[in-house]
Every structure is written in C-alpha cells, then in structure tokens.
Amino acid sequence: MKLEVNGVNREVRSEPLTPLLDVLREELDVTSPKAGCHAGGCGACTVMVDGKPRRSCLIPVAAVDGASITTVEGLGTPKDPSAVQQSFIHHYAAQCGFCTPGMVVAATAYIDGGGSDDKDEIAKAISGHVCRCTGYTKILDAIAAATKQTEFDITIIAPDPTTVTIGGSE
C-alpha cells in the first residue's frame, strides 16, 4: 500500500486492517496524531485524509490506500507556521498539548470550509475534541482570530486578562 504523508510518498507494510493512526505513529514515525481513546471519542488522532478531517484511529489503512494524509506537521513548520498554528501559539491555546494536533487540524478544516468567527459555531465544529487542560476558552479565541486571516497578524492580539492588584507588589 501507499500513502502520501505530508507531501512525501510512503510505502506501507502494516497489515491492511491496522488503524491509520498506528501506521502513522508506529510504522512511519509521524507522531503528531495522538492516541487518546483509540475509539473515536476524543479527536486527538485527527488528520486530514484527502483534505477532510478524519479520526485516524477508526480507519483501517487499506481503506485509504493511495490517499493523501496531512497531519499537523504538514500544515506548517516551527519556522513557518500556518495562521492557525501561529494563532494557537499567540493565544496560549495549548497547555499539555495532547489535544493540540487534532484541534489544529480540525480548526484548519473549519476555516478552509469557510467557518466564521462565531464562538458557538466554532465550539460545534470542535465539539468532538476533548481538552483536559485549557477549558477551551483560549482554543476558541485562537480559532476565532485565525478565521480572520490567512497570514497571522500580530496586531490582532489576545485580550488582556482582568487583573486586580491589591496590596503592595513592588
């Protein structure tokens, strides 16, 4: 079998019924998709299959023979991050980062599909993704900001937290 993974043609030797997630992580050493539940419930394994977000834990690799797979590494690099990636960084939208690869792929698909900056819409779009750390607020902020730009604009900054100072601090 063959897969095009992040623009590179790869030969696959795993058993045909091996989940795509395991092929990526174990055989091809593409480790950004995370194995959270391995049962379709958490979204951490989400990758693009021919441009559409899919849970790689649920797909036998034989079913996507010849497909083009994009993981979060394929969307941008640390030196040249995509707008969504940059927006996640800028809004502090990751803590432990376990959900982040799936969230970024889902957010990219949402924006590519013409999604708006409406937070309720965004919450719906990522509702199949769970995050234990962030409480989602900063993820929604990041995605909303990224809908407005293809190039990340540093002038659209995160809102300042409400801070009240009492007592002498200096």
Partner: peptide
C-alpha cells in the same frame, strides 16, 4: 476512556 465524561466544548 470514552465512557468517562469530561466536559466538551459544548458544555461550556
């Protein structure tokens, strides 16, 4: 993992 319910974005 799936049957332990943590809040999703829709529970916000």
């Amino acid at each position: 993992y799936n049957s332990y319910m943590i809040p999703s974005p829709l529970d916000m």
